[in-house]
Design a protein around this nucleic acid. Structure first.
Lengths: 128, 128
DNA sequence: GTGGGTGCAAATACTTTGCAACCGA
DNA sequence: TCGGTTGCAAAGTATTTGCACCCAC
C-alpha cells in the first residue's frame, strides 16, 4: 500500500468520527460532512473509511445491515438493538477468556474489536 | 405470520442444512439442491432461510460479507477466518458472563447464537 | 511534474420482493 | 377451493470501482 498523502476530505472524516460516540454509518458521515463540503462524494467516504479501517486507525463494525464506524480503537465490544438499531459500547472484560478458547480450538488469536452482541434494548422491550 | 404449509423445497433445504457442518451460504445451498431440483430458484432459498431463521428453526449468521446458515440451534458461537473464509464452531462457556454485563449496562438480554469472532486461522497464519 | 485522491457514475454483491402460476390441505 | 409457496425477474440496499481531473508534495 502506497504512502498516504494529506487530503481535506480524509482529515474532515477523521475529525468528525472522533467527535462522536454514536458509531455512524458511512452515509451518516457523508450527510453530515456534505454540509460543509458540498462536492464530497459517498465513494470518497467509503474509500477513506476502508483505508483507515485497514490501517487500524478506526474500527469498522459489521452489523448484518449497514456497517458502523468507530474512532475509539481501544479494545471493546458493541451491542446492537435489533429493533431500533441503537448501537452501544460494551466494555471488554472477557477478552482473555475468548482468546484462550479460540486459540485452543483452532490456533488463532481473535481480532480485537470484532464483537457485536445482538438483542433488544430496554426501551424497545418496554414498548412491546 | 400465517401457518406454514409443507413444501418440497423447504424440506430439502432443512435436510441439506442439517446434514452439513460447514455453515453454508444461501448460494451454496442453492447450488447443491439445484442438482436434484433443477427448477429451484435462489429467491426461494432466501425466502425459506429467512422464514426458518425468524422461527428459530435455524441460525442466520451475519459475517460482514455473505450470511451463513446453521442447523445447529444449540447455543454456541462462531469463528470466521478473515483470510480464507473458513467458518468454525466455538463452544459457548461465556454466555452467562456476557448476559450479565449486557443486562447491567443496558437492560437487555443478548440474543443467543449471535457471536462471530474474527481472526486468522492457523492454516492462513502458517502461509504468511 | 508525478502519483495519490476526488467526484461522479456505473458496476458489483447480496438479498428481498411483486406477481402470476402452482400445489398442498 | 383457498391460501401459502414457487420461479422468475426486477428492484433494493450497501459498497466498491473505473476513469478523467485535481491537488499535495
Amino acid at each position: 500500500m502506497a504512502q498516504l498523502k494529506f487530503s481535506r476530505q480524509r482529515q474532515a472524516l477523521i475529525e468528525e468520527l472522533a467527535g462522536r460516540r454514536d458509531h455512524p454509518t458511512a452515509e451518516m458521515l457523508y450527510t453530515k460532512l456534505k454540509g460543509t463540503m458540498p462536492h464530497l462524494s459517498l465513494g470518497t467516504v467509503y474509500r477513506n473509511l476502508s483505508t483507515l479501517a485497514q490501517d487500524g486507525e478506526i474500527l469498522r463494525i459489521h452489523t448484518g445491515t449497514t456497517d458502523r464506524f468507530d474512532a475509539v480503537t481501544r479494545e471493546h465490544d458493541h451491542f446492537c438493538c435489533e429493533q431500533c438499531g441503537r448501537f452501544l459500547d460494551l466494555e471488554k472484560d472477557i477478552g482473555g477468556h475468548l482468546n484462550a478458547q479460540a486459540e485452543a480450538l483452532c490456533g488463532v488469536r481473535v481480532a480485537h474489536h470484532s464483537l457485536v452482541f445482538y438483542g433488544t434494548c430496554c426501551q424497545c422491550q418496554t414498548n412491546r
